[in-house]
Design a binder for these strands. Structure first.
Lengths: 121, 121
DNA sequence: TGTATACTGAACCACATGGTTCAGTATTAT
DNA sequence: ATAATACTGAACCATGTGGTTCAGTATACA
C-alpha cells in the first residue's frame, strides 16, 4: 500500500514544484555549477538563485561546497528514489481504481442486456 | 533529455508537497469520498478540506461532482504519468552523474598508482 | 595596495498557503 | 413546515514563497 508519511516528501515535492528549480537540477545533472553561473543561466539575481539552491539543499537534492570565493553546487546524494516509488505506488492504485470502474461499467452492460432480454420476452 | 517546461508540473508537484493531500489521493484510491468524509478522516474543517480538494482538482489529480447536497470526490483522469517520467529521467541523469564521478575517482586511483610507481622508481 | 569578483544577509514586497470562523444556501428527512 | 445535513464563500490570520535591492565581507588579481 502507498504510504504518505515520509516527512521529507513535503520538502522534495515542494522543491520540484518550481520550474527554475527543476531546471537547476537538470543543469547540475550535466555539470556542477557556481551560484553565479546558475543565476546567469536562469536570468536571476545571485540572491534569488541562492534561495532556490537553498531550497534544493534543504530537500537533500543538491549539495554545495564553498572553495575560495565560489560556491560550487552539485547533485546531492538523494536521487528521488522514494518519491519515484511513491508515485509508482499511486499509479498502481490509480490504474486499479479505473479497472474497477471498467468492471462496474461491464456489469451495467450485462445487466442492461439481461433487462433487454426480459423486456423482449 | 529531461525537460522541465510542462506548466502543470508546478501544480501537480505542488499538490503532492502536502501530506494531507497525498493522504487524500491514497484515500480516493481506495474509494470515492465526500468532502465531509475526507474532512473527518483528516481532522479538518469542511472548508479546509474543500481547499485541499480544490488544489488537487486544479492539478487535474481529482475530479468532483455534486449530486444533491453532497459533492463526491474521485481520482481524476490524470495519473501522474508525466511526473513519473520526469523523475525517471532525472534519476538516470543522477545515476549517470555518479557513474561519471566513479570514473573520475577510478582515474585518480590509476594516476596515484602511476605516481606511486614513478616515485618508487 | 587597490580593485574587481563572488557570494551573503537583512529588509522589503506582493501574493500564495494552510488553516480557521462565521454566516449563509440548498437538500433531505421528519 | 421544520430541522438537520452538506456544502459554500468571504474574511481573517500567521507564515512561506519568489523575487528584488542594498550594503556588506571575503577572496583573487594586478
Amino acid at each position: 500500500m502507498v504510504q504518505y508519511y515520509p516527512a521529507h516528501f513535503d520538502a522534495s515535492f515542494g522543491a520540484l514544484s518550481d520550474a527554475t528549480r527543476r531546471g537547476v537540477l537538470e543543469q547540475l545533472g550535466r555539470a556542477d555549477a557556481s551560484i553565479t553561473a546558475l543565476a546567469e543561466r536562469f536570468q536571476m539575481t545571485l540572491t534569488g538563485m541562492k534561495k532556490h539552491v537553498g531550497v534544493l539543499e534543504q530537500a537533500g537534492l543538491v549539495s554545495t561546497e564553498k572553495v575560495g570565493r565560489v560556491r560550487t553546487c552539485r547533485l546531492g546524494l538523494r536521487g528521488l528514489e522514494e518519491e519515484a516509488a511513491w508515485i509508482e505506488g499511486y499509479r498502481q492504485l490509480w490504474a486499479a481504481r479505473f479497472d474497477q470502474l471498467d468492471l462496474v461499467v461491464e456489469e451495467l452492460k450485462q445487466r442492461e442486456k439481461a433487462n433487454g432480454r426480459k423486456k423482449r420476452k
